[in-house]
Amino acid sequence: MALIPAALRDAIGRHGPVIRVVIAAHQGSSPREAGASMLVWPGGQSGTIGGGALEFAAAARARAMLAAGCARQVERTPLGPALGQCCGGAVTLVYERMDAEALAALPETGLHARRVEGRAEMPLAVARALRAARGQGVAATLWKSGWLAEPVAPPARALWVWGAGHVGRAITATLAPLPDFAITWVDTAPERFPAEVPHGVTPLPVPTPADAVPRAPQDAEHLILTYSHALDLELCHRLLHHGFGRAGLIGSASKWARFRARLRALGHTDAQIARIACPIGTPALGKHPQAIAVGVAAALLTPCTTAMETPACQTSPC
C-alpha cells in the first residue's frame, strides 16, 4: 500500500481538512496490512483499514480529532482485549490531519518519511530505506522508533471509459474505489451520467465523443462501451491512429469480425487491430453489467495480461 496524493487532493477539495488513518505496523493477525489507510471527514470516509470494530472506532477518533483541531495521534490497539475481536493481533494506527498545506509538502514520488512521535533523530533503518527508495524505486511502509515512512504512489493509471450506459456505470462503480486508476468517463451529454458520479471519476460530456480522443494520454487505457456501433467503430479507428496503452471493446465475436474487416478497410494492419481486445471481461460470467464489470476489473488488475480479456494465467501458469 502507498500514500496516494491524488486521493488526498480529491478528498480535501471536496470536504476540506481530513484525517488520514494508516496502519503503521501490526503484530500477529490484523484486518489489513501495514500501509492500509482511510480518509475521514465529518460526514463520511473513503478507503478502509479492514472494517469492523477497529475501523468504526478509528473513524470516531478521527472525527473527534477534526472537531478538536488535533494534528496527529498514535494509537496502539490490542484487538482482542480492546475491541473483543477474535484475531489475536495488535495494530499501531497513526492519525494525521491533512489539508492543502500538508498536501503541498508531500513528495511527488519516493518515500515520505516523518517523525510522528519519539526521538527527533531519524532512525538508521529509515535513512537506509530512503536511500534504497532513491536508488531502486522500491519501498514499503516502515514504522521505527516513532518515525513513519511510506511509499508515495506514482500517478494513477489513466483509464478512459467511453459510454455511460448500464455497463459503463457498472465498470466505473467497480473500478472507482481502487487507488490505481484515474478515470475519465465520456458520453454525449451531462444527463447521460448518474446524478452522483463516483469519487475519482471525471465526467466528460462531449457532443461528438470521438473528438475527445486527442485529449487522452497516448499511454491511456480505454474501454469502449457506447450505445452506438458506429461510434464504437469510430473510436477504435481514431484510437488506433492516436495510440493507447490498452483498449477493449464490448461486443460479440460476430461484431468484432465485422469491425476487423472495417478497420482493415480504413487502413489498419491486422497487428494493429489485434491490440484491441473484444470481447472484454469473462464471457463465462454472463452478460449482466456487473458480471462484465467483474471480468474487466480482474483483467485490468492482472499484471500478466496485455488485453482487456481475462488472461489465460488465471487458469494456468503464465
Rank of each mutant, 00 (worst) to 15 (best):
H241D: 13
L54V: 10
P31V: 12
R114F: 15
G135I: 00
A153M: 11
R258K: 13
P214R: 07
C86K: 02
T302L: 13
A64V: 07
E150W: 04
A127L: 09
A129F: 05
A24E: 10
M38T: 01
A257R: 15
I23T: 01
A58P: 10
A265W: 07
D270C: 01
A158N: 05
P279A: 05
V294P: 03
A62C: 01
E150A: 00
Y95N: 11
W147Q: 08
R215D: 02
G295T: 05
L8F: 02
L66S: 03
A257Q: 15
P209D: 13
V161C: 00
Q27T: 14
A125I: 06
L111M: 07
R114A: 14
W143Y: 09
R14T: 13
I19H: 09
R238E: 09
P209E: 13
R115A: 07
D187L: 02
Q218G: 07
G110F: 12
A36F: 12
L300H: 11
L103A: 08
T282N: 14
E196Q: 15
F181N: 02
T174R: 15
M38S: 00
C313A: 12
R260D: 11
A102M: 11
A230E: 12
M1Y: 09
C70N: 14
A297D: 12
R128T: 06
Q73I: 02
G69A: 06
A195K: 06
S145C: 06
A57E: 14
R131G: 04
V201M: 11
A7G: 11
L175R: 10
A62E: 02
D219M: 05
G84I: 03
I224W: 07
V18K: 02
A71I: 03
S30H: 05
L178T: 04
E309N: 10
L240W: 03
A307W: 04
G281C: 12
A271Y: 04
A297Q: 11
V213H: 07
F259L: 06
E221K: 02
V201S: 12
Q272E: 15
A216V: 03
Y227G: 01
L301P: 06
R260Q: 15
C304I: 00
A284S: 15
D270T: 09
G16F: 10
A133V: 00
W160D: 00
A182G: 09
R238G: 06
P205T: 03
L159E: 01
V91Y: 06
E150T: 08
R115I: 06
G43K: 08
F56Y: 13
F56V: 11
A230C: 03
C278Y: 01
H268W: 02
E309V: 09
T141A: 11
V152G: 00
L124G: 13
A127I: 01
A71N: 09
T92N: 02
H229R: 00
G200M: 05
T48G: 07
I23S: 01
F193V: 09
Q314H: 13
R131Y: 04
